[in-house]
């Protein structure tokens, strides 16, 4: 599944990095703890979170994540968006809560392993 295909089913709005939407997603990770994501998320995973702190961009970049999906309609502050644009990290936002997002991605075949 690519980010593009994922975006269709989830009512997401792409906030940064829409040039990289063709990327294939290797799995999914849901967490709001940066240390956990840095420790456990794998390359090519899409990351679902409520966290909008600027450091999410560094974590996604460091781990080579496919993109970040923010939940509950959350919008990151300007410094996060700025950094994401600079580092070419995809950030999307959806009005759905994380449980719903994960459930739907799981039904589409995405796993965390």
């Amino acid at each position: 599944m690519t980010l593009q295909e994922l975006a269709k089913g989830l009512d997401v709005e792409v906030l940064t990095g829409d040039a990289k939407l063709e990327r294939e997603i290797a799995g999914g990770y849901v967490s709001d703890l940066l240390s956990d994501v840095i420790g456990n998320a794998k390359e090519g995973f899409v990351w679902i979170t409520f966290q909008v702190h600027m450091n999410i961009v560094a974590a996604a970049s460091l781990k080579g994540l496919a993109g970040i999906i923010l939940v509950n309609g959350r919008r990151p502050p300007q410094d996060t968006l700025q950094k994401a644009s600079e580092e070419n990290v995809i950030i999307m936002t959806t009005p759905l809560p994380a449980f719903e997002v994960v459930g739907r991605l799981y039904e589409l075949g995405l796993r965390c392993r």
């Binding site: 799995g27 999914g28 990770y29 849901v30 967490s31 456990n40 679902i48 759905l96 809560p97 994380a98 449980f99 719903e100 994960v102 459930g103 739907r104 991605l105 799981y106 039904e107 995405l110 796993r111 965390c112 392993r113």
Partner: peptide, 18 residues
């Protein structure tokens, strides 16, 4: 299970977030 797979498994069996 990871949080992702835990949520996925429960969703698959009918539990919803909304």
């Amino acid at each position: 299970y990871s949080m992702f797979d835990s949520c996925g498994k429960l969703y698959e069996k009918g539990l919803r977030g909304k």
